[in-house]
Design a protein around this nucleic acid. Structure first.
Lengths: 218, 218
DNA sequence: TGTACATCAGTGAACGCGCGTTCACTGATGTAC
DNA sequence: TGTACATCAGTGAACGCGCGTTCACTGATGTAC
C-alpha cells in the first residue's frame, strides 16, 4: 500500500509491526525507537510524530499482545461453545503458544514497566477485556462442574497463575529436559491443568497418549 | 573488614552485593558493570579482574538468587519436618516473598539471558539443588496424601508453575486490585495452592480467616 | 479548474549520555633466597 | 631479618557505539476561495 512516498500513510502501525519484528529478532534489549524507524524505512526522528516517547511505543506493543490474546480467547470460546473444559484447555494452549512463538513479545506484554502509568487507557482496557474472557471461561467451567465452586475472579487468578507460570518457565528454559523428553509441551500443560480440575482432562484430550507418557515417567 | 586499601580484599563479592543494591534501586535496566564498580568504590575497569564480562556478573547474581531460595527451602523443610502440607505452603510463601521483596533480583534469577550457556556450572548446580528441594517437598506431600500420586517431577513443574506464575503476575501488577482488597496476598496464594491439593489447606492455615474473605468476595 | 495557504508528517544534523571493553600502567603483596 | 623479584589486583585514559530526544527545516497534502 505505502510506496516510497514522503508521507508514509500508516507509519504508526508500521512502527508497531517493526517493533514486533525487532523483538522477535533481537529480543527485548534490542528494541529501540531508532531501530524501529529504520525497520519502517523512515528517519529516526519520524516516530516522534506518532509516539510521544519510547515508552508509548512499548505500551502500544504491549496492547498489541493483549489484543492478539483476546482474539484467540474469543475464538476459542466461540469454537467450543458448549464444552467449557475444552475451552479451558485450548485457551491455556493458545496462551502457551503465544509465549513460545514470540517470547520477547510475550515478556513485553506482561511486564509492568509501562502499566503503572494511567497514561495508556487503551492498554488498560484491552487488559481488562482479556481478564474478562478468562473469568468467563472459568465461570462456565464451574457451572459445568469442571472447576470447584468459588469466586470466579479468585479462581481466575489461580488458573491464570498456573498457565502463566508454565509459559514463563518454559520460555526461560527452566522446565527440566528430562520431563520434556517424556512428554510433549501440550501434555505437560494438560497435566498441570488436570491438577486444578475436578474431572480428568487428559483422557478427554485429543493428543491421546498422555497417560502412557506419565506411566513411562514413573 | 575492607578499608580504603589499594587491594580491596573481597571485590568479587562486593560487586555482587553492589549489583543487588543497584537492582533493588534502579531495576534491571539500571544494572551495569560501571555502576557496580562505582557502588563498590572501585574504578570501572576493576571488575574485569573478577568477571570476564557483564554476563558473568549477571550469572553470579542469578546464582545468588537461587542460593537465597535454596536456603529458605531447606530451612522450611527442617522447620516443619513432619508437616508436608505446611512445607508446601511455607515454601511457596517464601518464593512469593522473595519476588515481592526484590522484584528485579527475582526477574534476573529466573531469566534465561544467561543460562543457555554451559559456562556457568555453579549456576546450573544451584538451580538443580533448588529443584531437588521442590521435588522432595512434593514427594512428601504425595506420601502424606496431600497431593495426588503422579511422577513427582511432573507434579513439581505444575506446582512450581502455579507459584511462579502467581509471584510473577503479582510483581507485574497484573493481579486485580479488587481481589487484593478482599484478601491478603498470602490468602490468595493459599487459595491457589488449595486448588492443587487434595486436602483443604486454608482451614489449617494460620492466618485464619480466609474462608470469610472468600465469602465476602462471593 | 486554478491558485494561495495552512497543516503537518517527514528529514537530517546535533546534543549529551552511559555503556562494555581494552590497554599500558602502577602500587601492594608475598615468596625465594 | 633484609632484599630482589614475580604476581596480580587495581587505575585512568581512551575506543567506538547506539541510544533518546530536540530542533530548525522541507516537502506533500488538502482546503478555501
Amino acid at each position: 500500500m505505502a510506496g516510497k512516498k514522503y508521507h508514509h500513510g500508516d507509519l504508526k502501525n508500521a512502527l508497531i509491526r517493526a517493533g514486533l519484528e525487532i523483538l522477535a529478532r533481537d529480543g527485548i534489549d534490542g528494541l529501540s525507537l531508532r531501530k524501529a524507524a529504520q525497520e519502517a524505512g523512515v528517519s529516526h526522528a519520524a516516530p516522534y510524530a506518532h509516539f510521544t516517547d519510547k515508552q508509548a511505543l512499548v505500551a502500544a506493543i504491549s496492547a498489541e499482545g493483549y489484543r492478539l490474546l483476546f482474539n484467540q480467547l474469543k475464538a476459542v470460546r466461540e469454537a467450543f461453545q458448549d464444552e467449557p473444559q475444552r475451552q479451558l484447555v485450548e485457551a491455556a494452549w493458545a496462551y502457551v503458544q503465544f509465549a513460545q512463538s514470540d517470547p520477547a513479545h510475550f515478556r513485553v506484554t506482561f511486564s509492568s514497566t509501562v502499566k503503572q502509568e494511567k497514561d495508556y487507557p487503551a492498554l488498560v482496557e484491552i487488559t481488562a477485556k482479556c481478564f474478562e474472557q478468562v473469568v468467563s471461561i472459568i465461570a462456565s467451567c464451574q457451572a459445568a462442574g469442571v472447576l470447584r465452586p468459588a469466586p470466579p475472579e479468585a479462581m481466575a487468578v489461580s488458573i491464570w497463575s498456573a498457565v502463566h507460570g508454565f509459559a514463563s518457565l518454559l520460555i526461560e528454559g527452566q522446565i527440566s529436559h528430562q520431563l520434556l523428553d517424556q512428554m510433549t509441551i501440550r501434555q505437560a500443560l494438560v497435566f498441570t491443568l488436570d491438577q486444578l480440575t475436578l474431572v480428568a482432562l487428559a483422557q478427554g484430550d485429543f493428543s491421546g497418549d498422555q497417560p502412557a507418557a506419565l506411566r513411562r515417567l514413573a
